[in-house]
């Protein structure tokens, strides 16, 4: 298990599938996380494996994706595309009205649990 800071954001694939949220393409676009190679090594995970990310807001199981080219986040930072998966573990309320969707602490561990479908995740 490692401690990380989670950040969320838009991606091209998320933008392209935003009007088709019940499609497989959308699930594929938002149900993964990216982390540094060194963190992947520490966790013993490779591209396509699953991890459980947890904090006091909740938990979520995501696929691990090895970032393209040299775009890996720095050590200790996990990127998740904005959407229903990320929202299980981000969104701290600081009183200004806008939830904190970025810079949220969490732990990551390797898991065998399944990644839920988009529908399962909102109905859970």
């Amino acid at each position: 298990m490692i401690e990380v800071v989670v950040i969320t954001g838009r991606t091209t694939d998320q933008g392209m599938t935003i009007d088709e949220k019940l499609s497989e393409a959308y699930m594929k676009a938002v149900s993964f996380c990216e982390m540094n190679e060194k963190d992947m090594e520490k966790l013993g995970v490779k591209d396509g494996d699953r991890v459980l990310i947890k904090n006091e807001l909740g938990e979520v199981v995501l696929y691990v994706k090895k970032p393209e080219m040299d775009l890996q986040p720095p050590e200790g930072i996990v990127f998740i595309p904005m959407g229903p998966y990320a929202n299980r573990i981000v969104g701290i309320l600081n009183g200004s009205g806008t939830p904190q969707y970025k810079g949220v602490k969490a732990t990551v561990e390797k898991t065998d649990r399944a990644v839920l479908s988009v529908e399962e995740i909102i109905m859970e």
Partner: peptide, 30 residues
């Protein structure tokens, strides 16, 4: 439903919701 934190979505699931939109999305589901 896709973009609010989990706790806010939980409340939306409990109250009557009207959706006006061209495309089916996660809010359509509830």
């Amino acid at each position: 439903v896709a973009h609010f934190p989990k706790k806010a979505v939980e409340r939306l699931k409990k109250i009557p919701v009207i959706q006006i939109d061209p495309h089916p999305n996660l809010t359509t589901k509830i």
